[in-house]
Design a protein around this nucleic acid. Structure first.
Lengths: 344, 344
DNA sequence: TTGAAAGCGCTAACAA
DNA sequence: TTGTTAGCGCTTTCAA
């Protein structure tokens, strides 16, 4: 009895093993009551027929797909690759499948969300873009937990985890001030992202509080990308011939790296001698020889862990908690782009 | 009639719109015969109820999930991130969902494949690891096309796309010879990957043919990672004090970058004055100021395009073609780690 | 163009 | 511990 072309179902296995179809189902379900002998016979038959249980079919009855959607903005930023990796690792370990989506940064994720909903995912992790209240509503009605990663929707009840971005921005301001900087450039990121906004705000607020006049904080649009950071730096200091400040803060590492390459590669600026630079994220590249970037570390592992906790995949039925907003603190990783204060 | 908690089905919509359930199904199916009036009424009702069609349920009857599995080895290599990005973009544009998997490099992907098969994916793209003939068989029996990306299984009938890695290796050997190199180091990658093997073979074969004695080709194990390339370089030239050769070829860019950082950062070697370096892949980072790496470009767009063609998602029923193996040529991208021959 | 009815492959009561 | 039976939410004949 060779496996016929196409599909082998539990019925085929049942027939070969001489049991009922439900017995087959039980043999493949953890903790189902079935005798060892029968299970073994069924597994044998299944192997012989190359039977693979159909999760799609079982999802229909169990109302669980064991799939989670991960919606990402920007895979050009290594930080989010790192996040994706961490999520995949954790989710895979739990036997959960990952439906991956990308959404252009700043654009609305409603479409992506709608498509994902059709697949009856058990949960959604969103690292990108806007989320309409209508969508939050739909997910809520359907009992699908949705977790925002490094993002929050002001006034929404969606849960999320994020780095304490504002505090991180302040940390960097303090670090730079402590190292003696008095004039600054701020490489800003995606204007729609709360993440960028918070870091920027924390940074400038702190500077202002410490008496730095607004004129001494030059704001540059870096688009959150390497190329954006590179281009903005060139434009400001080469094309527009603005004076080089004491320090530049890239709202994320990848922009800071773009700035560094522009500064050193095209303008011969020495870092940190001529100018200090600070980043945010602590991506792997920040530790490499060309950069050795002092930055604010985001604890990816803790953050992804918390995100999955919020998803609470083990408690399907559980009423979705109203907007829990977890803020994980970042901390400075000292490397060589900012002289470290000796007072430690 | 507010949307009840939980699930709204086509039946609910049918009730509200005053039509049969099958009419609702038709309203949501392209090219189904249904009157415009009815369709509009149904769509209205659906909107009112926040109805989202259940793809899981429809997959059961149509036998198509519109999901494709992408199995990846190594997201630490930016090249594969680029591949993933390209695949996501293309697949998403066609309305296909992506089930993402990672498999430890060199390990067997059977488990991942089995899990994926349960989800009745319409196709599989595999960039990683081994693939047992049993698995190829199962996929074949079930009519699931499987495409190997930059990999092939010698003697298997699985289709695939790859860069002409051997030819690329030769290209680099020629480039280095042309620039005057006579002694070499070869940073090898994953010993189980055909990709690495082919590049290495092409490289050494060419060198040998051109009269370079084997003693002048030092082989280093770089594990296909930045850290691996970095460490192997340090070990060979710093710890073991081997003489620095004229040139080093990193089987992929990320290893070459690791080597460059080790050479310049820890040993003060000048590139290309003291030693030339060649890479393979042409990842974005290779073009950046600290590296400006001369490398063999893999045409990611063409390759992913071809991969999807092989998948042939539009012809579900079509008998799976027997092992088509597409080889796309790479070409040298000249930058500054190898002096460019003037004879052009 | 429409609706009724029969499944798709599985799980989950319910009896035995 | 088992088998029987009734769905899960949809698509798809088949008649009307």
């Amino acid at each position: 009895m060779k496996p016929l072309s196409g599909r082998v179902t539990s019925l085929d296995v049942a027939a070969l093993a001489g049991v009922s179809q439900s017995a087959v189902s039980r043999a493949f379900t953890e903790g189902s009551s079935i005798s060892e002998a029968k299970r073994k016979a069924i597994l044998d038959a299944a192997l012989k027929l190359n039977y693979v249980p159909n999760s799609i079919a079982s999802s229909l009855t169990t109302r669980r797909t064991n799939m989670v959607a991960v919606i990402l903005g920007n895979l050009d930023n290594p930080f989010y690759v790192q996040v994706l990796k961490a999520l995949i690792t954790r989710l895979q370990a739990r036997g959960v499948q990952i439906l991956t989506f990308t959404v252009k940064n700043g654009s609305n994720s409603d479409d992506a969300l709608m498509r994902v909903l059709r697949y009856q995912v058990d949960g959604i992790i969103l690292t990108s873009a806007q989320l309409s209240t209508r969508m939050t509503g739909i997910c809520h009605d359907r009992g699908i937990p949705i977790v925002l990663f490094n993002r929050y929707i002001p006034g929404s009840s969606a849960s999320g985890v994020r780095c304490d971005n504002a505090a991180g921005g302040r940390l960097m301001a303090e670090a730079l001030l402590g190292a003696g900087a008095r004039s600054f450039a701020l490489l800003k990121g995606d204007p729609n992202g709360t993440t960028s906004q918070d870091r920027q705000r924390g940074f400038t607020d702190c500077l202002l509080e410490r008496g730095i006049p607004p004129v001494d904080i030059l704001e540059l649009e870096g688009q959150s990308t390497y190329d954006g950071g590179h281009a903005a730096t060139l434009r400001a200091f080469l094309d527009e011939r603005r004076p080089i400040p004491d320090a530049i803060f890239g709202i994320n590492d990848i922009m800071a790296m773009g700035a560094m390459d522009a500064l050193r590669g095209e303008m011969g600026v020495k870092i940190p001698a001529d100018l200090m630079v600070g980043g945010f994220d602590n991506i792997d590249e920040a530790d490499r020889w060309p950069y050795r970037l002092t930055t604010v570390r985001q604890p990816v592992d803790e953050m992804t862990e918390e995100a999955l906790n919020l998803l609470d995949l083990d408690n399907p039925g559980a009423a979705i908690q109203p907007g829990i907003d977890i803020k994980v603190p970042g901390r400075i990783v000292w490397r060589s782009t900012i002289p470290r204060p000796v007072d430690l």
